[in-house]
């Protein structure tokens, strides 16, 4: 104990320094820059809330918010329902479950940009028969993104759900069976309540991933047509680099975006946490 009291800085400082350099300082600097006009981060001029005013007036930003919100909700539901179902199927004692687990997990190992281009080829190959393309129609773009992200993330969420299933004590399920619960009742009254910790994690990951999506968006549609499929992260990027003198506005949007994601994630945590039960 005495040793810890004496030497705590040795253990703490390297990590704290890394945390400060890699996160705290850039974060504070970022908030500061959102109130300034700057070309490089070292010569910023204070302009107050002007950047925020411009950001809120920008109709593409509001559009990207609604597009992103719709996307996040759709992927939240699809990914979690499918991943849950797959996890349930793959924890049954059948032959080849390991092979299938690997197969479903694999897409998650490919980077977003690469995935975006691969899927663009696939979609183009199909849509050419219908005389259209993904970046000509916002609806197609939306569903293209949904398919891509589902394909990528279902495997990952499935692994978390599998771990959850394996930690459900067998006696609870056995008790339910003895009490005469049917499969449906077991699922909704026993399994899902027991799975709530996994559900909390997975919904948190999918909803924040949905909001933060960037590389897949950039590679698959790049916002075409006419910014109709531009999501918030891409909108911020385009604001930052697309116009002269808009670095501060992009930064202000990034701060708004951060607050939004935090608020949504907090709400989601509150909702799912309250449903968790003690095992």
């Amino acid at each position: 104990m005495r040793a810890i009291k004496k030497y705590w800085p040795i253990f703490l400082i390297p990590t704290m320094a890394a945390f400060a350099i890699g996160f705290v300082i850039p974060f504070i600097l970022g908030i500061y820059l959102s109130f300034t006009k700057f070309t490089t981060v070292t010569d910023a001029k204070w302009v107050g809330i002007k950047n925020y005013a411009t950001a809120f007036k920008d109709s593409t930003f509001t559009h990207s918010f609604w597009f992103t919100a719709a996307f996040a909700v759709v992927t939240l539901i699809l990914i979690n329902v499918i991943a849950f179902a797959l996890a349930m199927a793959l924890t049954k004692k059948r032959r080849g479950t390991n092979v299938f687990r690997t197969v479903f997990f694999m897409p998650n190992l490919i980077g977003g940009i690469v995935l975006g281009y691969i899927w663009q080829l696939i979609f183009s190959g199909i849509l050419v028969h219908f005389n259209t393309a993904l970046n000509l129609n916002a609806k197609l773009g939306f569903w293209g993104l949904v398919i891509l992200v589902c394909w990528q993330q279902i495997g990952y969420m499935m692994i978390i759900y599998i771990a959850g299933f394996q930690s459900i004590p067998g006696d609870v399920l056995e008790a339910a069976e003895i009490d005469g619960a049917n499969a449906r009742q077991t699922l909704f009254k026993v399994t899902i309540p027991m799975m709530m910790p996994s559900i909390t994690i997975c919904t948190f990951l999918t909803i924040t991933n949905g909001f933060k999506l960037f590389d897949q968006n950039l590679a698959l549609t790049a916002g075409a047509p006419m910014k109709q499929t531009e999501m918030m992260a891409l909108n911020i990027y385009n604001t930052f680099y697309g116009r002269t003198g808009f670095e501060g506005v992009g930064q202000a949007k990034a701060v708004i975006f951060f607050l939004l994601v935090v608020a949504i994630a907090a709400l989601q945590q509150k909702l799912t946490r309250s449903k968790e039960v003690q095992q």
Binding site: N135, L136, P225, N238, G242, R243
Partner: peptide, 28 residues
Amino acid sequence: MPSEEWKNTLGQALTVYAADQTDGNWDL
């Protein structure tokens, strides 16, 4: 040209028009 954004928007409008060459799309 005022910005990259201007060019990008024009490019996307040209793409949409190319796929369906109507006067309505040229208005875009």
